[in-house]
Amino acid sequence: MELDTYVRALPKAELHLHIEGTLEPELMFRLAARNGVALPWASVEETRAAYDFTDLQSFLDLYYAGAAALVHEHDFFDLAMAYFARAHADGVVHAELFFDPQTHTARGIAFDTVLSGLERACRDAHARYGIGSRLILCFLRHLSEEEGFAALAQAMPHLGRIHGVGLDSSEKGHPPSKFARLFARCRELGLHVVAHAGEEGPPAYIAEALDVLKAERIDHGVRAAEDPALMQRLAHTQVPLTVCPLSNVRLRVFPTLAQHNLKTLLDAGLKVTINSDDPAYFGGYVAKNYIDTAKALGLTKADLKRIARNSLEAAFVDDAARAPWLARLESLPG
């Protein structure tokens, strides 16, 4: 079986996916026209030309500007359905979507507008493609903890529709411990907890996410390789890392994909998964991340099957939902 075909045949979960980061320029311009929103760019081509990032912040500046096109519930529905169509083609059987309500409520968009559009897309994707899904509310770490509590207050009437919370946006200078009280409250409410750590921030941020926030998964986590004791800990505990290879190259975490440390992490026994992060901006959805990484690092089919298995095992679902996916996976060679 050819690599491309094999990767798409692997049933996999995508666990690190910012739904706002799937906003392709073509859809961005259609929504902006529909909603009478002025964008900073004159055309789709000019927008794509702006995707030359020097670091995380240069990407975030563009990301927040593009999000202005999202105004109505149907915009969020269209956004998520476009993602689910691509995910289905890539062999995704389950997706856990990050969404950033603070990005939208700060523009006067109601929390329920965002959530209802995404939730409707999740239902339709299950009916149309059989894809399972979860919604994870992410707090913006460049804002204060008090602003995070305000976002949680807006979410409170809808907690039955949200499965977890995360922490994203600018990592440098914003350690996980900044949000200790907020995440303690989220855990009291029974929400799953994940956190971005160890992308641009140091390995100490990964330890803080584990010890202070009690994160069940670490989003990125690639800088764990700089701390041997942390590597041993992650191998022992099997806390999943949701690694995003193409994102890491586009944001200059690694100079090239051939220099990425994913295989180092995998060979050290860490529970590594592959994800696309913000695929509209970083040049590829999840299958392309698998394929390009396999080619760059010499990953075998057994490696890819293990990574897909890790993703299914790390998903926030029960064993009954997971069992048929694992059975499908084990039926494949590798």
Rank of each mutant, 00 (worst) to 15 (best):
G198K: 13
A315N: 11
L234A: 14
K172I: 14
H88S: 03
E2H: 03
V165K: 11
R252C: 13
H174M: 11
A85P: 00
A42Q: 14
A67G: 15
G198N: 07
A320V: 08
N35I: 10
V114K: 00
E46R: 14
R34A: 13
R309D: 05
G284Y: 00
V93P: 00
L17V: 09
L15S: 04
L241Q: 00
D55Y: 08
E45F: 13
G334W: 05
L137R: 04
Y205M: 06
I291M: 12
Y83I: 03
A151K: 06
F99W: 06
A209D: 12
P157E: 08
A127Y: 11
A50E: 11
C244I: 00
L191K: 02
E14I: 08
S170P: 04
A323M: 02
T293W: 13
E46L: 09
R185L: 15
A85K: 01
V222E: 07
P202K: 03
T293D: 07
A204C: 06
P40Q: 07
G283V: 13
A125L: 02
H163A: 15
Y285A: 09
A209T: 06
F183I: 14
D112E: 15
D267S: 12
G190I: 09
P157V: 11
L23P: 03
K301L: 15
R233W: 01
L312V: 05
M81D: 13
A82M: 04
R161K: 01
A323N: 06
L266K: 12
D168K: 11
R217V: 09
A258N: 07
V253F: 09
R141T: 08
